[in-house]
Measured scan of single mutants.
Amino acid sequence: CHSECLGNCSQPDDPTKCVACRNFYLDGRCVETCPPPYYHFQDWRCVNFSFCQDLHHKCKNSRRQGCHQYVIHNNKCIPECPSGYTMNSSNLLCTPCLGPCPKVCHLLEGEKTIDSVTSAQELRGCTVINGSLIINIRGGNNLAAELEANLGLIEEISGYLKIRRSYALVSLSFFRKLRLIRGETLEIGNYSFYALDNQNLRQLWDWSKHNLTITQGKLFFHYNPKLCLSEIHKMEEVSGTKGRQERNDIALKTNGDQASCENELLKFSYIRTSFDKILLRWEPYWPPDFRDLLGFMLFYKEAPYQNVTEFDGQDACGSNSWTVVDIDPPLRSNDPKSQNHPGWLMRGLKPWTQYAIFVKTLVTFSDERRTYGAKSDIIYVQTDATNPSVPLDPISVSNSSSQIILKWKPPSDPNGNITHYLVFWERQAEDSELFELDYCLKGLKLPSRTWSPPFESEDSQKHNQSEYEDSAGECCSCPKTDSQILKELEESSFRKTFEDYLHNVVFVPRKT
């Protein structure tokens, strides 16, 4: 048989008469490798580009789960590009990614509803959504962080984005990388972005840091009482949809009607710091009717980097990364020049730590249904340095008659930039024990000054392991946590139920 035959053949030295091919099969003959313009397919066939392209389009058009959109890589027609490569849609070739590779997620039936953290986790790592997304989240724990972890990498949506009755959302900033909504599939009414009845939605994105392009379709905003109209108009300008909307697409009466839409800028007039305090004062603000001013709200939190936005980490279910302080308005003076500047002394802060701070007014709604208010920009203030805590785990070892090696770990709280350490030492008198000992005694162990690591005695271990207080009263049991108490109650309830079950099964009433 021919060298490319495997198993047997019907005619000697003829690659077209093989029972099976050793390498690849091409047009009725066995070959060692697939010549151009053919590609290896499933490690035994040679196919042309049209064959591989037909497989790709067949799966793409069917949208069946589990099928493969075949691509070409290293002269092979394979189910998908290997790690580190992405497909070129024009020629199906796998090309190296520039940075992290995109991950295209194809949605069944063309859309997916995100109504819980669990459903959001199914899209973790996706960068391109081939379909439409509907966000409908009523509640949950730590929602802002969970949504950002699972949806934060999405850069492109081919269909539309719909935010509907998501009472738990305060902001859409968890879509931190969303840059493009194509609108290839539109919501009824030709809408590519749809926001309806979101009672706590206050911000779409921080438009000073976020760009969003909507290729096709219109915007729809109705019944978002805490979303200011200025935020919607800003989205029109940034996304390129200005002029597409009709009169009733953006409701003037049901958007922002319960919001404090600040239209003035508060400026800080005085800032002073110490290692654990920050004193702030800002310019006074009074609405047209000074009785509408209820006070100020001061927001602050630790910020290692200057990239904080107002609604980071917030949701309507209680999660809030900001510390909020309510401040009463100052006494009002008739003389504008003698107006008191409101302020606040922030206490209990960490030394040498940068804080993000902003302040906003708290006002009631005027009778004319106009909203007044003022808010400052987010500023960054760093507390002063102070003395560091003591170095940890000092170790001293003498390696000769004239040297001592000293080692330690950095302090747990540096409280500033540590530039150097101060080492103090003092000579001590020799131990009298060394002169009084009889060095001729056998088995004498000389006193040693070398360091030995501390260890816990058996008594201390027994005390720590004991669940009861000892007789001397030195140790006591740790208080039980809520989960331990709940577990004990469940076990007790189970024992009672099981005992009742045994009584009912074992003891049967005697027939009379």
Results as ranks from 00 to 15, higher is better:
Lys103Gly: 13
Val104Leu: 05
Val104Ser: 07
His106Arg: 12
Leu107Cys: 05
Leu107Lys: 04
Leu107Gln: 13
Leu108Tyr: 08
Gly110Lys: 04
Lys112Leu: 11
Ile114Tyr: 05
Ile114Asp: 00
Glu122Gly: 13
Arg124Phe: 11
Arg124Val: 06
Arg124Tyr: 02
Gly125Thr: 05
Gly125Asp: 08
Gly125Lys: 05
Cys126Ile: 01
Cys126Pro: 08
Thr127Glu: 01
Val128Ala: 10
Val128Gln: 00
Ser132Asp: 10
Ser132Arg: 01
Leu133Cys: 01
Leu133Met: 07
Ile134Gly: 07
Asn136Lys: 09
Asn136Gln: 02
Arg138Ser: 11
Arg138Pro: 03
Gly139Glu: 08
Gly139Arg: 07
Gly139Leu: 09
Gly139Trp: 05
Gly139Tyr: 04
Gly140Asp: 08
Asn142Pro: 06
Ala144Gly: 05
Ala144Leu: 14
Ala144Trp: 04
Glu146Val: 05
Glu146Phe: 04
Ala149Asn: 10
Asn150Trp: 13
Asn150Phe: 13
Leu151Ile: 04
Gly152Ser: 03
Gly152Cys: 10
Leu153Ser: 11
Glu155Pro: 02
Glu156Pro: 00
Ile157Trp: 01
Ile157Ala: 00
Ser158Phe: 10
Ser158Pro: 00
Gly159Cys: 03
Gly159Leu: 00
Tyr160Ala: 01
Tyr160Phe: 11
Leu161His: 01
Lys162Ala: 00
Ile163Ala: 04
Arg165Thr: 09
Ser166Tyr: 03
Leu169Ala: 03
Leu169Tyr: 10
Val170Cys: 10
Ser171Asn: 13
Leu172Asn: 01
Leu172Ser: 03
Ser173Lys: 12
Phe175Tyr: 03
Phe175Met: 11
Arg176Cys: 06
Lys177Glu: 11
Arg179Glu: 03
Leu180Arg: 06
Ile181Met: 02
Gly183Lys: 01
Glu184Phe: 10
Glu187Gly: 05
Ile188Val: 12
Ile188Trp: 05
Ile188Gly: 13
Asn190Met: 15
Tyr191Arg: 06
Phe193Thr: 02
Ala195His: 05
Ala195Met: 06
Ala195Val: 06
Asn198Asp: 02
Gln199Pro: 06
Asn200Tyr: 05
Asn200Asp: 03
Leu201His: 00
Leu201Tyr: 00
Leu201Ser: 01
Arg202Gly: 03
Arg202Phe: 09
Arg202Lys: 12
Gln203Gly: 15
Leu204Met: 10
Asp206Pro: 09
Asp206Trp: 12
Trp207Leu: 06
Trp207Asn: 09
Ser208Gln: 13
Lys209Cys: 12
His210Val: 07
His210Met: 09
His210Thr: 00
Asn211Arg: 10
Asn211His: 14
Asn211Glu: 09
Asn211Cys: 08
Ile214Gln: 12
Thr215Tyr: 06
Thr215Cys: 10
Gln216Gly: 15
Gln216Val: 09
Gln216Arg: 03
Gly217Ala: 02
Gly217Phe: 01
Gly217Val: 00
Gly217Asp: 02
Leu219Met: 04
Leu219Asn: 15
Phe220Leu: 09
Phe221Tyr: 15
Phe221Leu: 07
His222Gln: 02
Asn224Lys: 00
Asn224Leu: 07
Asn224His: 10
Pro225Gly: 15
Lys226Leu: 06
Leu227Lys: 00
Leu227Glu: 00
Leu227Ser: 01
Cys228Asn: 08
Leu229Phe: 15
Ser230Gln: 00
Ser230His: 01
Ile232Val: 04
Ile232Gly: 01
Ile232Cys: 04
His233Phe: 07
His233Asp: 13
His233Asn: 05
Met235Val: 12
Met235Ile: 13
Glu237Cys: 05
Glu237Met: 13
Val238Trp: 14
Val238Tyr: 04
Ser239Thr: 05
Gly240Glu: 07
Thr241Lys: 13
Thr241Glu: 13
Lys242Arg: 06
Lys242Trp: 14
Lys242Leu: 14
Gly243Lys: 10
Arg244Tyr: 15
Gln245Arg: 04
Gln245Ser: 12
Gln245His: 05
Gln245Glu: 14
Glu246Val: 12
Glu246Gln: 15
Arg247Ser: 11
Arg247Pro: 07
Arg247Phe: 11
Asn248His: 03
Asn248Phe: 13
Asp249Asn: 06
Asp249Trp: 07
Asp249Val: 12
Ile250Lys: 02
Ala251Ile: 07
Leu252Trp: 11
Leu252Asn: 09
Lys253Arg: 05
Thr254Trp: 12
Asn255Trp: 05
Gly256Ser: 07
Asp257Gln: 02
Asp257Pro: 04
Asp257Val: 15
Asp257Ala: 02
Gln258Ile: 08
Gln258Val: 12
Gln258Ser: 12
Ala259His: 15
Ser260Gln: 12
Cys261Ile: 06
Cys261Leu: 08
Cys261Met: 03
Cys261Pro: 05
Glu264Arg: 08
Glu264Phe: 09
Phe268Asn: 00
Phe268Asp: 00
Ser269Ile: 02
Ile271Asp: 02
Thr273Trp: 09
Ser274Gly: 03
Lys277Cys: 14
Lys277Ala: 13
Ile278Thr: 03
Leu279Gln: 03
Leu280Pro: 13
Leu280Met: 10
Trp282Ile: 08
Glu283Lys: 07
Glu283Pro: 08
Pro284Ile: 02
Trp286Val: 11
Trp286Gly: 13
Pro288Gly: 06
Pro288Tyr: 02
Asp289Tyr: 10
Phe290Asp: 10
Leu293Arg: 07
Leu293Ala: 08
Leu294Trp: 08
Gly295Tyr: 12
Phe296Ala: 11
Phe296Met: 06
Leu298Cys: 07
Leu298Ala: 05
Phe299Trp: 05
Phe299Met: 10
Tyr300Val: 12
Tyr300Lys: 02
Lys301Ser: 11
Lys301Trp: 04
Glu302Val: 02
Ala303Tyr: 04
Pro304Thr: 13
Pro304Phe: 12
Tyr305Gln: 00
Asn307Tyr: 02
Glu310Val: 02
Phe311His: 10
Asp312Ala: 04
Asp312Lys: 05
Gly313Tyr: 13
Gly313Thr: 11
Gly313Leu: 03
Gln314His: 04
Asp315Leu: 09
Ala316Arg: 15
Cys317Pro: 06
Cys317Tyr: 11
Cys317Thr: 02
Cys317Asn: 03
Gly318Lys: 15
Ser319Tyr: 13
Ser319Asn: 07
Ser319Cys: 11
Asn320Trp: 14
Asn320Lys: 02
Trp322Phe: 12
Thr323Asn: 07
Val324Ile: 02
Val325Ser: 12
Asp328Met: 14
Pro329Arg: 14
Pro329Ile: 11
Pro330Gln: 14
Pro330Thr: 08
Leu331His: 08
Asn334Tyr: 09
Asn334Thr: 12
Asn334Gln: 13
Asn334Phe: 09
Asp335Tyr: 15
Asp335Cys: 10
Asp335Phe: 08
Lys337Ala: 08
Ser338Val: 07
Ser338Thr: 13
Gln339Arg: 07
Gln339Ala: 13
Asn340Gln: 10
His341Tyr: 05
His341Trp: 11
His341Lys: 07
Pro342Asp: 10
Pro342Phe: 06
Gly343His: 10
Gly343Leu: 08
Trp344Glu: 07
Leu345Ser: 08
Leu345Arg: 01
Leu345Thr: 03
Met346Asp: 00
Arg347Met: 10
Gly348Tyr: 02
Gly348Lys: 01
Leu349Ser: 02
Lys350Cys: 09
Pro351Leu: 02
Trp352Cys: 04
Thr353Gln: 10
Tyr355Arg: 00
Ile357Gln: 00
Ile357Ser: 02
Val359Thr: 04
Lys360Ala: 14
Lys360Ile: 03
Thr361Met: 08
Leu362Gln: 03
Val363Ile: 05
Ser366Leu: 02
Ser366Arg: 09
Asp367Gln: 12
Asp367Leu: 08
Asp367Lys: 10
Asp367Cys: 15
Asp367Glu: 12
Asp367Ala: 05
Glu368Ser: 09
Glu368Ile: 12
Arg370Trp: 09
Thr371Ser: 06
Thr371Glu: 03
Thr371Met: 11
Thr371Val: 08
Tyr372Ser: 05
Gly373Phe: 15
Gly373Asn: 03
Gly373Ala: 10
Ala374Gly: 11
Ala374Leu: 14
Lys375Thr: 14
Asp377Gln: 03
Asp377Trp: 15
Ile378Arg: 08
Tyr380Arg: 10
Val381Arg: 12
Gln382Thr: 10
Gln382Arg: 10
Thr383Ile: 01
Asp384Pro: 06
Asp384Ala: 07
Asp384Cys: 08
Ala385Phe: 14
Thr386Ala: 15
Thr386Leu: 03
Thr386Ser: 12
Asn387Arg: 09
Pro388Ile: 01
Ser389Thr: 14
Val390Arg: 09
Val390Pro: 13
Pro391His: 02
Leu392Asn: 13
Asp393Cys: 14
Asp393Pro: 04
Ile395Gln: 08
Val397Ala: 03
Asn399Lys: 15
Ser400Val: 11
Ser401Glu: 14
Ser402His: 04
Gln403Leu: 10
Gln403Val: 03
Ile404Cys: 02
Lys409Ser: 08
Lys409Asn: 15
Pro411Asp: 01
